Simulated assay, not measured.
Amino acid sequence: MKNEVLRYVAFSADPAGGNPAGVVLDASGLDEAAMARIAADLGYSETAFVFPGQEAGPAQEAEAGEGACFEVRYFSPLIEVPFCGHATIATAVAHAQRHGAGELTFRTKAGEIRVSTEIGPDAAVMATLVSVAPRSEPVPPDVTAELLDALRWSADDLDPALPVRAAYAGAWHPVIAAADRARLARLDYDGPALSALMARHGWTTVNLVWRESPSVFHSRNPFPPGGVVEDPATGAAAAALGGYLRTEGLVDAPTKLTVYQGYDMGRPSTIRVRVPEGAATGIEVGGTGVAI
């Protein structure tokens, strides 16, 4: 149905868990003001808008070896973002439930995102995206100090084995690693200061992480520029984390990671990450999704 607004959670099979997202599978005719208004009314961290009129033709699909190709745009309650992982997973799950599982390509402002879906024996839908080429860069010491101050963290709160970096896999996220789980559990940041700093540097969320083991991470993601205190599951940040770990030589690729997020806010989410070899190779991020 044209302009129908669906509600899904991503990275959980339980509607009470995961990260809620709005999904509009046919956004034909909607302009930016309308999309922004729908996203604000929903209040979810992101809503994805799909434009079926931008599908690839049969020749292009056959050449690419993939299924349909759509333009997709993502809006938070306050801003448009170039790419959103959890809304991509939610959109792919919604599409699979209506049109069958398979391969899709989403044309986003960050680039082309390949997505695959499969339906399990229990009818649960699993979706996996492949990010654009990731990269990371150092955060200058003065900016790191300003960031820690806005988070109300100190240098002693950091894990020295995981250096502060700005990481990208479709959107930028500074990666800040906590020395212990207790530090990650305490989230009490200066909203206006953090929002202004993030806007100045083009950061979408701040990826606060704690490394439980070489392959298991716990994460929290403040998102004040989007009008959201905290994101329950951030697929874009998980992809950026995978790229960061590979770039910094902190994992041996190929490898698989699990990221747990949302537990401190009562919306448990599980994000599966696969880090392949190759510095410019996209990071795979997968999880289940379900209608609310």
Rank of each mutant, 00 (worst) to 15 (best):
I38E: 12
A145P: 04
L162K: 00
I271K: 11
G22R: 11
S219W: 02
E63Y: 07
I38W: 12
M126K: 08
T128R: 15
E103A: 14
Y168E: 01
V273K: 04
C69N: 00
W210N: 00
P276L: 01
D231S: 10
P192A: 09
P225M: 03
P140I: 10
S219H: 02
I283A: 01
V259A: 08
V5Q: 06
E4H: 14
A169T: 03
E137W: 12
F83E: 05
V229T: 11
H173L: 01
Y260G: 07
D190Q: 03
V125I: 15
L241I: 01
N221C: 15
L208A: 05
A239D: 02
I176G: 01
T128C: 09
A21T: 09
A39F: 13
L129E: 06
D252H: 05
N3H: 13
M1S: 13
V115K: 06
V132E: 05
S136M: 10
L30P: 09
P268G: 09
A280Q: 12
P268W: 13
V229E: 11
T281W: 00
A124G: 09
T288V: 06
G53L: 01
D149W: 04
V164M: 14
G282K: 05
A34R: 15
G191Y: 07
V81M: 03
A177Q: 05
E66D: 08
R107F: 01
A92K: 04
A240F: 06
G102F: 06
G18W: 11
V139H: 08
S154K: 11
S215T: 15
S269V: 10
A34F: 05
H173E: 02
Q60I: 03
S136D: 13
A10N: 11
G85W: 10
L194H: 08
A167W: 05
G278E: 04
V5L: 15
R7L: 11
P192M: 11
G17W: 14
R114I: 00
E66W: 12
P174F: 03
A56Y: 07
E248L: 12
E80V: 05
V216R: 14
G287W: 13
G287T: 10
D156L: 05
P77M: 10
A96C: 12
A62N: 07
I292G: 13
R135C: 01
I113S: 04
G102A: 03
R165K: 12
P134D: 02
K2C: 06
R246V: 00
I176Q: 05
